[in-house]
């Protein structure tokens, strides 16, 4: 028994066009794909929409295609399909690892890549029952006017906690979005705002329909890895999640891309990462990297684990992954 599901009407469009039209007609409508995030939140009274548009029956969203331009993954492809795909595991390992780390296998069988990118931001003052939040005077993200995490601030500090976004970011992914005026493509980082209650830059009638990954180039391979910090080996959301990719040039210089989730209201690509040259000394390079991360992440008291811990472990895990990839790519 839990709080009863609020009433709503469900529509089940068969095409993207129909889904966009439905959203356009119902500005308060919400998309549902796997439902693992949305329904859990609805059961806690966090979603008030009277109209759900189920996009799980749209065939084209389930397509995955390896072409010469790269890999296109339909937004409705499940995380289970992604972590079971041998090519993704070989060519885009961070993405497979990130998918594999989400919740439990039952969730991964339902949850979609599009849904994971849109996953609601999380906070211990938000992901609670109606009684709880009401007793606490609600919060900035939902029905209230104060952020309990940072009461003097003017924005919601809820943390973006999707695992896939950083893995996609370090692989230079573009997102394909459909709207009433057709489709558009944006770099994945452009999808997000650093604001817990307004974290997605999507119009109300837009749908993510696919992600596009650049083709794997065996001549200039990109190696990657993802790791999340969490207390338990399953179920938990990331306290910090770090994806790193590494591309070695002919000169031996290695270019690293590092992206972080779980610490801020948006997943983000680390700025000012300098390329690594063997002559620099790995330890010094990693020490600088650690400082860079600690400066750019901004964990708040949105989890029961200490914010400082999330800052330190984001840096430590990034160092660990970077070291591993740099050693791997130089020996390979």
């Amino acid at each position: 028994m839990s709080e009863p599901m609020p009433p709503f009407e469900l529509s089940r469009p068969q095409t993207v066009g129909q889904a966009v039209k439905a959203l356009n007609a119902l500005p308060e409508g919400r998309l549902i794909a796997g439902g693992t995030d949305l329904i859990a939140n609805m059961r806690r009274g966090l979603v008030e929409s009277k109209n759900l548009i189920d996009i799980s029956a749209i065939a084209e969203l389930h397509e995955m295609e390896f072409g010469k331009d790269g890999l296109r993954i339909g937004a409705g492809v499940t995380l289970r399909e992604i972590c079971n795909d041998m090519r993704i595991r070989a060519d885009y390992p961070a993405i497979a690892q990130a998918s594999d780390g989400v919740a439990g296998p039952g969730h991964r069988a339902a949850a979609t890549i599009g849904g994971n990118l849109c996953q609601d931001t999380r906070c211990i003052y938000y992901n609670q029952s109606h009684w709880w939040r009401k007793s606490n005077g609600f919060c900035l993200k939902f029905k209230g006017d104060i952020c309990h995490v940072a009461p003097t601030g003017r924005r919601c500090r809820a943390a973006f906690s999707g695992d896939l976004a950083p893995a996609l970011i370090v692989h230079g992914t573009n997102i394909q979005i459909a709207g009433p005026g057709g489709t558009r493509r944006v770099a994945i980082a452009e999808l997000y705002n650093e604001d817990g209650s307004d974290y997605l830059r999507l119009a109300p009638d837009e749908i993510i329909i696919a992600v596009h990954l650049p083709a794997f180039n065996p001549m200039a391979p990109v190696v990657s890895a993802y790791e999340k910090v969490r207390m338990r080996g399953a179920i938990d959301y990331p306290l910090a999640g770090v994806a790193v990719s590494c591309r070695r040039s002919n000169t031996g210089e290695a270019e690293l891309q590092i992206a972080v989730t779980g610490t801020n209201s948006a997943p983000f690509l680390l700025k000012n990462v300098s390329p690594f040259n063997a002559g620099d000394g790995l330890d010094n390079y990693l020490a600088d990297l650690s400082k860079l991360i600690q400066k750019q992440v901004s964990p708040q008291r949105t989890t029961t684990a200490a914010a400082h811990y999330r800052r330190l472990t984001a840096a430590a895990v990034a160092q660990r992954l970077a070291r591993k990839l740099l050693l791997e790519s130089s020996s390979g």
């Binding site: 992901n127 207390m231 338990r232 080996g233 399953a234 179920i235 938990d236």
Partner: peptide, 10 residues
Amino acid sequence: LEYRMPTIVE
């Protein structure tokens, strides 16, 4: 989720 009894994994 927040009352963290161990999972089978760990």
